[in-house]
Simulated assay, not measured.
Amino acid sequence: MPSHEFEEPACEDTCILPRLLQNGANPDPSGFQVTPLQIAVHARDLAGVNALLEAGADPNNTGDAQGVYWDPKTSVLGPYTKLRGLAPLYILRHLKAYPWCESGMLGEDIDLMNGETTTAIERLLLNYGAFNISVENK
């Protein structure tokens, strides 16, 4: 889950994602309709996007259509089900941010489409080979 402040591009010692990746967590797991990178991009989590890409996440992965589904009404990850089938670059360019707040609850959709964080994430995705901006979500 995204756990970084929008304005803070660098992970602090308390960030769990880098530690998980250092301990062998797969940055691009199969079997889920939504990927960690899709979630990090949607949350405009620059540090998370960077950590996942550096660890080998596919910048064009749209998730596994037959994978685990999170019910929007019963799962804390439910709001992210709308990302299934969408490329990270598409998410960045066409969806409003949905940040993970410090309280642990999902924040409201906010418009960060032209911010420095969005520009930095787009640059990262493109540098790692993102090209897929198609919509496969049904």
Results as ranks from 00 to 15, higher is better:
4 H>R: 13
4 H>L: 04
8 E>Q: 13
13 D>N: 13
16 I>R: 09
17 L>Y: 05
18 P>E: 05
23 N>I: 01
28 D>K: 03
28 D>L: 03
29 P>Y: 08
32 F>G: 07
35 T>W: 01
35 T>Q: 00
35 T>M: 00
36 P>N: 06
37 L>T: 09
38 Q>Y: 08
38 Q>H: 12
40 A>F: 10
41 V>S: 05
42 H>Y: 05
42 H>P: 00
43 A>E: 07
44 R>D: 10
45 D>T: 07
46 L>T: 01
48 G>D: 04
49 V>K: 06
50 N>P: 00
52 L>Q: 02
52 L>E: 04
53 L>F: 01
53 L>H: 00
54 E>S: 12
54 E>H: 09
60 N>M: 10
60 N>I: 08
61 N>A: 13
63 G>N: 01
65 A>M: 12
65 A>V: 14
66 Q>G: 04
68 V>R: 12
70 W>Y: 15
72 P>G: 08
72 P>C: 08
73 K>C: 03
74 T>H: 11
75 S>D: 15
75 S>W: 01
77 L>D: 10
77 L>F: 13
78 G>C: 02
79 P>A: 02
81 T>V: 13
82 K>W: 02
86 L>S: 02
89 L>Q: 08
92 L>P: 12
93 R>I: 03
94 H>G: 00
97 A>S: 15
97 A>M: 08
98 Y>W: 11
106 L>F: 11
107 G>W: 05
108 E>F: 09
110 I>L: 08
112 L>H: 06
113 M>P: 01
113 M>F: 09
114 N>M: 07
115 G>N: 07
117 T>Y: 05
118 T>R: 09
119 T>L: 05
128 Y>M: 06
134 S>V: 12
